[in-house]
Deep mutational scan, measured.
Amino acid sequence: MLYVKVKTEDGEELVLEVEGMTEDEIREELAKAGFKIEEIEVYEVEP
């Protein structure tokens, strides 16, 4: 499983499960949803 931890400019932290997306695609999708991203951390969790 691939997850991203996202910190927004307003200090909110989100953890999202993503599969088959690049970091650029993740940033693009979050921007479309109205999030202003300060930091993204991508990590993989073994089942």
Rank of each mutant, 00 (worst) to 15 (best):
E44R: 11
L14P: 00
I26N: 00
V42L: 09
E38L: 15
E19A: 12
L14T: 04
E41K: 07
V42W: 14
E12V: 14
I37W: 10
E17H: 13
D10M: 07
P47E: 07
I37Y: 10
E12Q: 14
I40W: 06
E19D: 10
T8I: 05
F35H: 04
V4Y: 06
V18W: 08
M1Y: 13
V4R: 00
K5G: 02
E29P: 00
D24Y: 09
M21I: 08
M1H: 12
D10P: 01
V42C: 03
E23H: 07
M1F: 11
G20V: 05
V4G: 00
D10Q: 11
R27D: 01
E9M: 11
V18E: 00
E29M: 15
E23N: 04
K7E: 04
P47F: 11
E23I: 15
M21R: 14
L14M: 11
E39W: 15
I40H: 01
R27A: 03
V15L: 12
L14W: 11
V6L: 09
E19G: 12
Y3V: 13
K7V: 10
E12A: 12
K32M: 06
V6H: 01
L14H: 06
V18C: 11
T8Q: 05
V15C: 15
E9D: 08
E29Q: 10
E9W: 08
P47Q: 09
M1R: 14
V42F: 15
K32H: 06
I40F: 09
E25I: 04
V18K: 03
E25L: 05
K7W: 12
Y43G: 05
E44Q: 09
K7G: 02
V18I: 09
L14Q: 04
K5V: 09
E44K: 07
E9V: 11
I37K: 05
K36D: 06
E39D: 13
K5D: 01
E44S: 10
V45R: 14
V15D: 04
L2E: 02
A31S: 11
M1Q: 09
E29V: 14
E12C: 15
G20F: 11
I37R: 09
L30Y: 05
E13D: 06
E29W: 15
I26W: 09
V18R: 07
G34E: 02
D10S: 12
V45T: 10
E38Q: 13
K7Y: 11
D24L: 08
K7F: 10
E38Y: 14
T8V: 04
I26S: 00
L14I: 12
E44N: 10
V45Q: 10
D10F: 06
I37C: 11
D24M: 10
E25Y: 03
Y3R: 06
E28R: 11
V42Y: 14
K36E: 05
E28A: 13
V4N: 00
E17P: 06
K7P: 04
M21C: 13
I40S: 02
K36I: 08
E28V: 09
G11F: 01
G20K: 06
T8L: 15
E9Q: 12
E12D: 09
G20Y: 10
I26D: 00
K5N: 03
G34V: 01
I26M: 03
I26C: 04
V42H: 05
T22D: 06
E13W: 13
E25G: 03
E9Y: 10
V15R: 06
V15H: 08
E23Q: 06
F35M: 04
K7S: 05
E39F: 13
E23Y: 14
E23P: 12
V18F: 15
E38K: 14
E19C: 15
E41V: 12
F35Y: 12
L30V: 03
E13M: 12
E23D: 05
E44T: 10
A31E: 11
I40A: 03
D10I: 05
E25S: 05
V42E: 03
V6M: 04
M21Q: 06
K5A: 03
V45M: 09
F35L: 07
L2G: 04
M21P: 02
T8R: 07
A31P: 01
E19K: 11
E44V: 11
E9S: 13
P47R: 02
V18T: 04
P47W: 11
Y43I: 08
P47L: 10
E46V: 13
K36R: 10
E29C: 15
E12L: 14
E9G: 10
L16D: 00
V15P: 00
E12I: 14
G11W: 01
L14R: 05
E39Q: 12
E9F: 09
F35N: 02
M1V: 14
Y43V: 07
E28C: 04
E44W: 15
K5L: 07
D10H: 09
T22H: 03
Y43M: 11
V4H: 00
A33H: 13
A33I: 11
G20L: 06
E12F: 15
V42A: 04
E9L: 11
K36T: 06
E12Y: 13
Y3W: 14
G11D: 03
V18G: 01
M1P: 13
F35I: 11
D24P: 05
F35K: 02
M1D: 02
V15M: 11
K5Y: 09
E19P: 05
T8A: 03
E25Q: 10
K32W: 04
G34I: 01
I37T: 07
D24F: 10
D10C: 12
E39Y: 14
E13G: 03
E17V: 15
E38H: 11
E19I: 14
E29R: 08
D24H: 08
G11N: 03
E25F: 03
I37D: 08
E23R: 12
R27Q: 03
V15F: 13
E46Q: 12
E41G: 06
I37S: 06
A33K: 14
Y3A: 05
K32S: 06
I37H: 06
E39N: 13
T22I: 02
E46C: 08
T22R: 03
F35C: 05
K7R: 11
A31K: 08
G11Q: 02
E41Q: 09
E29Y: 15
E13S: 10
G34T: 01
L30K: 00
I26E: 00
E9R: 11
V15N: 05
D24A: 13
T22W: 03
K36H: 08
E17C: 12
P47T: 11
K32P: 00
I26T: 01
M21S: 06
E25T: 05
E13A: 04
M21W: 06
K5E: 02
L2N: 05
L2R: 14
A31H: 09
V15K: 03
F35G: 01
Y43Q: 04
D24I: 08
T22E: 04
V6E: 00
V4W: 03
E46Y: 15
R27I: 09
G34W: 02
L30W: 04
